[in-house]
Computed example of a mutant assay.
Amino acid sequence: MQKIKHWVKNHRKTTIGTAIVLVLLIGMGIINKIKQNKAALSSRYVVAKVAKTTPLTLTGTVAAQQQQVLSLPSGKVQSIGVANGQKVSEGDPLVTTYSESANEELTDAKQELAKAQRNVTAQQNNVSAAQKDAAAQSEDGTASGSASSVAQAQASLADAQSDVTAAQNKVNTLSQKVTQTLTAPFDGTVTVDDTKQDAPVITIYSNDLKLKTKVSEYNYSKLKTGQAIHVRALATGKQADTTISYLATVPTTNSQSNGASYEVDADLSSKDFMDGQTVKASVAQNQLRIPKSSVKNGQVYVVKNGKAKAVAVSGKRVNEYFEVKSGVKAGQQIVTNPDSKLHNGTKVSADGND
């Protein structure tokens, strides 16, 4: 018994020390476990940066600003003054025609003119004769009807002169129809299709070029007249920055039944591009876009200094994304997979940012 009391007395201090060490170890374990849980909570959130929508890309072709199939004057083609692919200036003669029927009408009109001119001469003589008779009757005092005769003769002369004017105008008009020349309406390049006898097809393409493409009804709201657009030729790699000059409000005739498309044009320089080339066009978008999973109950969690903060956002869902109208700015970091455990002040690791 004495030995047992002695042993307990000798080992009491050791036992207490051991107990204290155990308590400390357990406490440290609990603290580490809490830290690990917090770290796990923080690391399970995915953080991404708010970014602008990717540029809208379109495929199109280069075309002439103006393209016109010219109407030939009436008559038979006498000569074609240009070759296929020739450069022309406004006013240059292209085709000359001759109309046999117009020439026959002109011959008849000239005869009518000559007849009208002879009638004028005759009426002038009548006026002179009436005036002489009136003068003679005035001398012998018998001029009762002389004034009326002169007036009638002068009226007939005026009618005859009007007939001459009308006949002359007809001759002038028909003279222009006998031989006619088609001229270039603007500067450009002409193509000549002379496969049809006596009926060549003349088409003129202006020197000024344009991008011609289409945009779907789903992307229509992303474009507007005057907006900057970047164009690159696929074959040559040449590029240009220009602006949208035309955005149609009426869909193209070949629009599909499940989606309308609208023509889009932009001016291009003939120094860098060639008619008919295939080009890619891109239009930068200022719209902010975030994953739609990041929006819960009209808000997102912005991460700043390692902590989450709820921020209200407005906008609309488009496919897998949410296009932001207000609430966040480009470059801010947000949690893309918020859950019920995420609150203001929650620590969020920025590892794995997009």
Rank of each mutant, 00 (worst) to 15 (best):
K110S: 05
Q36R: 06
K76T: 07
S162E: 07
S255C: 11
T96V: 14
H230K: 12
S148I: 15
S314Y: 09
S270C: 05
A122Q: 13
V127H: 03
Q2Y: 10
Y246G: 07
N169Q: 06
T253I: 12
S270V: 00
K341T: 15
G17W: 07
D133Y: 00
A51Q: 13
S269T: 09
D275T: 00
I4G: 05
A153I: 00
K170R: 01
V88A: 11
N254Y: 14
D159C: 04
Y98R: 08
L234V: 09
S144K: 13
R12W: 03
T121F: 05
S282E: 12
G276L: 07
S43Q: 15
N286A: 03
L174K: 01
S138K: 15
T179H: 09
P55G: 05
K196I: 06
L209Q: 02
A63M: 04
L174R: 08
V335Y: 08
S269M: 04
G298M: 10
K224C: 03
A281H: 07
T54I: 10
V120A: 11
K76L: 01
A228I: 07
M274Y: 07
V88G: 00
V328A: 10
Y321D: 14
K177C: 04
N32H: 10
S79E: 10
A233H: 05
G352S: 15
A48I: 14
Q161T: 06
Q36M: 10
I229Q: 01
D241H: 12
H11D: 02
V295A: 03
I204P: 02
A63T: 03
P93V: 06
G345W: 10
A40G: 10
L56E: 12
N254G: 12
I31Y: 05
A114V: 09
V201K: 13
Q67R: 12
D140R: 14
T173L: 03
V192S: 04
Q277P: 02
Y220M: 01
A116E: 08
L56F: 12
Q227V: 02
Q111P: 00
G259M: 14
P251I: 08
Y321H: 09
Q168E: 02
Q332K: 08
S349N: 15
S128I: 12
T173Q: 00
Y321F: 12
S349Y: 11
G145M: 12
T243Q: 14
K292A: 11
D339V: 02
T18R: 11
Y301M: 14
G188P: 06
V302I: 14
V250N: 14
V302Q: 15
T54E: 15
S42Q: 15
L288T: 03
